[in-house]
Amino acid sequence: MSLDKATVLRVARLARLKVRQDRLEPLAAELNNILGWVEQLNEVDTDDVPPMTSVVSMKLRWRDDDVTDGGAVDDVLANAPEGENGFFAVPKVVE
């Protein structure tokens, strides 16, 4: 599998990263280099191996479905680049 410029652009779009046109080619080369290196994993037969889902054998805990926190609008908005009337402000999305 080898990434071309179009794939790099598509992945960048999925990752919400603006990539300059002149960076596409070098980035494709870098990513191909890394992906080529990880292809060695195909040497290992993993057909009957379950994927790891938990690093340490443990059961996830349950808790009561109660509200335990909240009412901290000012704290939540304190770091927002733009906030108005208790909301985060973003560029207009609905015309």
Binding site: V19, F88, P91
Partner: peptide, 23 residues
């Protein structure tokens, strides 16, 4: 994403703002 904390680089729309901020 430039919305809740940290750096925000403006863009013409929301997606471009995300892309500019993250780049």
């Amino acid at each position: 994403d430039g919305v809740r904390y940290g750096l925000r680089i403006p863009g013409n729309d929301l997606t471009e703002m995300y892309e500019n901020t993250r780049a």
